[in-house]
Amino acid sequence: MKKSMPWIRCAGFLVGLAVILGICDFCFAPSGYVRFILHEVNRKDTQYDTIILGASHARSAINPEYLDEELGTNTLNLAIPGETVKDAYYLLKDACESNDVKTVIMDVDYQYWMDEQPQGYFTEPFICQNITNLKVKTEYLLDNWDTIDLRNVLVRRLSWDCTWSSVKQNISTKMTEAYREYSIEAAGVDGKVEGADGPYIGKGFFYRDTFGGKPGGADYIDLWVGRDNAGVDVNVSEQFGWINDYCKENGIELICVTSPIAPAAMQKLGMGKVHDTLQKAFDELGLKYYDFNKALMSFVPRDDIHYGDLEGHMGGALANTYSQAFAKLLKDAQDGEIQESDYFYASFDEMYQTMKSDYTKATGLEWEGY
Rank of each mutant, 00 (worst) to 15 (best):
residue 347 S to R: 05
residue 147 T to F: 05
residue 237 S to P: 00
residue 39 H to W: 08
residue 351 M to A: 09
residue 261 I to W: 05
residue 171 I to P: 11
residue 122 F to A: 14
residue 292 F to K: 09
residue 162 C to A: 06
residue 143 D to G: 01
residue 284 E to T: 08
residue 113 W to L: 04
residue 266 M to F: 00
residue 23 I to F: 13
residue 306 H to P: 01
residue 74 N to K: 15
residue 151 R to T: 13
residue 239 Q to K: 10
residue 146 D to T: 14
residue 93 K to F: 01
residue 92 L to Q: 09
residue 298 S to H: 03
residue 59 R to F: 01
residue 42 N to K: 09
residue 366 E to G: 11
residue 139 E to T: 02
residue 255 I to D: 10
residue 20 I to D: 03
residue 91 L to D: 14
residue 276 D to W: 11
residue 44 K to H: 12
residue 203 K to F: 00
residue 125 P to T: 04
residue 50 T to E: 03
residue 66 Y to C: 01
residue 92 L to P: 04
residue 6 P to F: 03
residue 48 Y to N: 02
residue 358 D to G: 04
residue 35 R to C: 03
residue 17 L to H: 01
residue 290 Y to S: 12
residue 89 Y to Q: 02
residue 340 E to R: 14
residue 158 L to S: 14
residue 41 V to T: 08
residue 272 G to Y: 11
residue 290 Y to K: 13
residue 236 V to G: 00
residue 51 I to R: 11
residue 92 L to E: 09
residue 133 N to P: 06
residue 85 V to H: 07
residue 284 E to M: 10
residue 190 D to C: 03
residue 364 G to Q: 08
residue 46 T to W: 00
residue 338 I to F: 12
residue 31 S to T: 14
residue 349 D to A: 15
residue 206 F to A: 00
residue 317 A to S: 14
residue 12 G to S: 02
residue 87 D to S: 12
residue 55 A to R: 11
residue 57 H to E: 02
residue 337 E to Q: 13
residue 103 T to P: 02
residue 186 A to C: 07
residue 281 A to T: 11
residue 320 N to D: 15
residue 309 D to H: 04
residue 320 N to A: 07
residue 272 G to P: 10
residue 45 D to G: 12
residue 256 C to R: 12
residue 59 R to V: 05
residue 128 C to R: 08
residue 58 A to L: 02
residue 42 N to Y: 00
residue 45 D to C: 12
residue 264 A to I: 03
residue 200 Y to D: 07
residue 107 D to G: 08
residue 207 Y to W: 12
residue 319 A to G: 06
residue 236 V to N: 01
residue 331 K to Q: 11
residue 306 H to A: 15
residue 9 R to I: 11
residue 180 R to H: 13
residue 77 N to T: 04
residue 122 F to V: 15
residue 104 V to S: 13
residue 95 A to S: 14
residue 138 T to D: 10
residue 111 Q to C: 00
residue 327 A to E: 07
residue 40 E to M: 01
residue 179 Y to Q: 05
residue 71 L to E: 07
residue 120 G to D: 05
residue 289 Y to H: 08
residue 249 E to P: 04
residue 317 A to C: 10
residue 292 F to I: 13
residue 199 P to T: 09
residue 268 K to P: 00
residue 342 D to K: 15
residue 307 Y to W: 11
residue 37 I to N: 04
residue 90 Y to M: 02
residue 125 P to Y: 02
residue 45 D to M: 10
residue 283 D to R: 06
residue 179 Y to K: 05
residue 311 E to R: 00
residue 359 Y to H: 12
residue 294 K to N: 00
residue 135 K to N: 13
residue 198 G to K: 05
residue 87 D to C: 13
residue 234 V to D: 11
residue 265 A to C: 07
